[in-house]
Amino acid sequence: MEHLKIRPIQKADNPFVAEMIRAVLIENNAPKTGTAYEDENLDALYEFYQEESSAYFVLTDGVKIYGGAGIASLEGSSVICELQKMYFLQEVRGKGLGMQMMRKCLDFAQAANYKKCYLETLPSMLAAQKLYQKSGFVYLEERLGNTGHFSCTTWMLNEF
Rank of each mutant, 00 (worst) to 15 (best):
C81F: 04
E91F: 01
V79D: 13
M86E: 14
Q84L: 13
Q90S: 15
K85M: 08
A72C: 15
Y118I: 03
E75A: 14
S124M: 08
Y66I: 12
F88G: 04
E120W: 03
Q90N: 15
F108A: 07
G68P: 05
V79Y: 14
V92Q: 07
I71D: 11
A109T: 06
Y87E: 12
R103A: 09
K95I: 00
Q100R: 10
K115M: 10
S78E: 14
P123H: 09
P123I: 01
A109R: 00
C117K: 00
M86I: 15
K104H: 00
S78I: 13
M101C: 07
G98W: 01
Y87A: 07
T121W: 00
G67S: 09
C105V: 01
G68S: 08
G68Y: 12
E82Q: 13
M86P: 08
Y87T: 01
S124T: 14
A109D: 05
L97G: 11
C117S: 13
P123E: 01
V92M: 12
Q84H: 15
F108R: 01
G96N: 12
R103D: 06
N113M: 06
G96S: 07
E91S: 09
L119S: 01
F88S: 00
E82N: 09
K85S: 14
Y66K: 12
G70V: 01
Q90P: 05
I71P: 10
E91P: 04
I80V: 15
I80Y: 03
C105A: 05
C117E: 04
E75N: 13
L119G: 00
R103T: 07
T121R: 01
S73T: 13
M99T: 13
E91I: 07
G76Y: 06
Y114C: 04
L122T: 05
I71M: 15
E82W: 04
R103L: 04
A72G: 10
F108S: 02
G98Q: 04
D107I: 05
C117V: 14
R93L: 08
M102G: 00
E120H: 07
K116C: 05
P123L: 05
G76A: 13
G98A: 10
G96L: 11
Q110R: 12
G68N: 07
S73L: 14
K85F: 05
L122D: 00
G70Y: 13
K116A: 09
L122E: 06
